[in-house]
Design a protein around this nucleic acid. Sequence first.
DNA 1: GTGGTCTAGACCACA
DNA 2: GTGGTCTAGACCACC
Lengths: 135, 135, 135, 135
Amino acid sequence: MATSPATDPFELNPQGSTPLYRQIVEQVQRRVAGGLWQPGDELPSVRAVADRHAINPMTVSKAYSLLEAEGVLERRRGVGMAVAAHPAGLMAVADRLDLLAPALEALVRQARQLGVPAADLQAALQQRLDQEDTP
Amino acid sequence: MATSPATDPFELNPQGSTPLYRQIVEQVQRRVAGGLWQPGDELPSVRAVADRHAINPMTVSKAYSLLEAEGVLERRRGVGMAVAAHPAGLMAVADRLDLLAPALEALVRQARQLGVPAADLQAALQQRLDQEDTP
Amino acid sequence: MATSPATDPFELNPQGSTPLYRQIVEQVQRRVAGGLWQPGDELPSVRAVADRHAINPMTVSKAYSLLEAEGVLERRRGVGMAVAAHPAGLMAVADRLDLLAPALEALVRQARQLGVPAADLQAALQQRLDQEDTP
Amino acid sequence: MATSPATDPFELNPQGSTPLYRQIVEQVQRRVAGGLWQPGDELPSVRAVADRHAINPMTVSKAYSLLEAEGVLERRRGVGMAVAAHPAGLMAVADRLDLLAPALEALVRQARQLGVPAADLQAALQQRLDQEDTP
DNA sequence: GTGGTCTAGACCACA
DNA sequence: GTGGTCTAGACCACC
């Protein structure tokens, strides 16, 4: 089980509506906030990520720069990027739940408009979480 | 309780990142898919919606046109738009759950990346659904 | 002989009753359906087409968006539009004939209503096709 | 075999892009031009057509008025509309073929863009005409 | 450079 | 009254 940044840690969806650089930024933020990635862990190079996903290196670079400006990552000259010593994003479980609020809100709103009963929604989540445990 | 298309059936959020016309498209899709709006029901006119939300008529028109191309709405010339006789989007509960898949997927992925335990996520959804019942 | 999307691949008739954006949509559909344009081929930019024909960029953009929604084109962010990897419209000769059905139907119906004999209609088509070969 | 104007002589398609009144106008024009309908033949009343197709009587009335202005129909006070004594539209076979030119042009252009071979197009027309003979 | 979104306003066609 | 089309121009996001 690999939780620290591997060669290819990102799940990118070029079709999706959220831009590529945003997808990278958000995934790093969450993993650091949740403690999955620890201070000092090194991220894959800009070029490695760009090659792996066949995207423009500038896109990756932009994401890393934003994360550096945020204090989540720090630049190690000649080496690459690493999770900052005191990452701004690390937080308690309760605060992490707040970060989930928008996604939760969207889910519930869509279910309401679709006329899907609360019980069915709960069941669907349960089922999806079970998949997660035993892939 | 008004379920069929009222004078102002839309909940638009001009601040959000999703464009206005997309918000309209998605809300109509879900309401038709869920059976809340029935075939033959007439939608509020382009101008009415535009005036109500102080937006450009073209924005509303664009949404309606897309929905017509999708087969969800049909144009009644000189009269207005109505839910299509055989809307492409009408479906059973199970299929409606499929429409929720992307939102559900996003929620679970974000929770995983944040390191939020499954139990906490379930609890958060439960709590949010309880709000829905007793607003 | 240039078959892949050139700088100016469209034949637009501003006088005709069919709107400009529809003309673009239909021409792309047919060329992709016929295999003249292959998956991955890049289309001329919105601005290029708009300048070339002295029309508003939005008109071209509208056409491209509809084609994307249909699955014929795909957006490459920051790069442009291209024929989709698996275009919804690519099809065998038999199916392409189905696309001609409406036009064929209209022709036959008009001939019937005009009392034009079948033989004369056949001859007229033959004559028109001969022009095509030796322009 | 009914060639003179019956109770319901029109083939109307509310979905099509051509407006309803235009469909009526063109069908009358062609039938008179081809001699299928003879001078003096009476047309169904505005109300009859409107009821039969569930459309607005004004739409039918507009079509009839245009045809009267053109000299194809004449108004018989208290009785209804009839094909004019000397209809402007009656013409020789060669001229009628000219009326088919636009439809023929559209068919050939679409076939070319679809990459359908001339022979296949000829065959398709032949097949469609055979249906016509033995319905 | 690319396309996306929205506005303000015009004119047209249809019923 | 309804929606459809097009324009001119603005601003934004992405790569």
